[in-house]
């Protein structure tokens, strides 16, 4: 279907954005990369009164490191995320996730801010930023506020973003020598939304002891799902096949997946267990990996 009739305005700065937002009213939406928003217009499921194009606001661009924080501008495109050396060095899971998002042409337009604001339950980046314990920087006419990623996502396509607010950046604690990060997903075809996916971020000592763990699933619930029990099962002991098995066991209480066209909840639970092992196996001491 063709897009519904709507208005369009492009803004060059945040100040201009606040003005246009005030004038446009609550039915207007923010347009960033548009790779999900514009597709949904063809479903005529949403009919915004207008789209406010923020893609030329320079302040929303760029990747930088300050102290122990990696700041990723919200307009950073998936393709840029995938090739940015700072991202690769300080938040390797994001560099690993980028090629999993759809296809090159989509990655050339889609932005991290847009993906987080949409909060698609099967999307990679929301799970990654939750696993990284990142902070979502949100701005409005009234100023800036910082929301822990885990609090930002509030369910199916729902976030803490209030009317008049946009995401300006994501702040990620930089990886340390103890960091272990990986993302694993099961898709029917390359680039498809995941049947089940896992963003795993651990802190491990040299002896293998896990000091911190955040296992965050996607595609198995209403959003980025922190597996609290499974994560806890890993903490305080060296990572072994036994602790991984314990984490897998804990998923029964952590996840309550809905069925979809691929299959029922049991399929999702099973795949979640499988990818838990596949993700964590990569962090096992090489001696145990070989075993």
């Amino acid at each position: 279907m063709k897009w519904p009739a709507m208005g369009y305005a492009r803004v060059e700065s945040l100040d201009e954005l606040w003005q246009v937002l005030d004038a446009a009213g609550p039915e207007a939406q923010i347009l960033a990369g548009g790779q999900s928003l514009l597709a949904t217009l063809s479903f005529r499921l949403s009919e915004p009164s207008g789209l406010i194009d923020i893609t030329r606001i320079a302040a929303l661009r760029g990747v930088s490191v300050a102290g122990a924080t990696l700041r990723i501008g919200s307009l950073t495109r998936h393709a840029e995320l995938g090739r940015d050396p700072l991202v690769a060095a300080h938040a390797p899971i994001l560099a690993e996730a980028a090629p999993l998002i759809a296809h090159p042409a989509i990655r050339n337009r889609g932005t991290i801010g847009g993906s987080l604001a949409l909060a698609d339950p099967a999307a990679e980046l929301p799970a990654c930023v939750v696993a990284l314990d990142a902070t979502i920087v949100v701005a409005s006419r009234g100023g800036e506020r910082r929301v822990p990623a885990a609090d930002f996502f509030q369910g199916l396509f729902t976030t803490d973003l209030q009317p008049g607010e946009i995401i300006t950046a994501v702040e990620v604690p930089v990886a340390t020598p103890a960091s272990r990060q990986t993302i694993v997903e099961v898709t029917r075809r390359s680039g498809d939304y995941a049947m089940a996916g896992l963003a795993a971020v651990l802190a491990m000592r040299a002896d293998g002891t896990v000091d911190a763990a955040r296992l965050v699933f996607f595609g198995v619930g209403s959003g980025a799902e922190i597996a609290t029990g499974a994560s806890a099962a890993l903490i305080g002991a060296p990572l072994t096949r036994a602790t991984i098995a314990a984490a897998q066991g804990a998923l029964a209480d952590d996840l309550d997946p809905p069925g979809d066209l691929h299959g029922g909840p049991e399929l999702k639970r099973h795949l979640a267990r499988v990818i838990t092992a596949r993700a964590l196996d990569t962090f096992l001491a090489s001696a145990e990996q070989a075993a």
Partner: peptide
């Protein structure tokens, strides 16, 4: 860059 033309206004 290659893009999806149907997803560009």
């Amino acid at each position: 860059d290659p893009v999806r033309g149907c997803l560009v206004m």
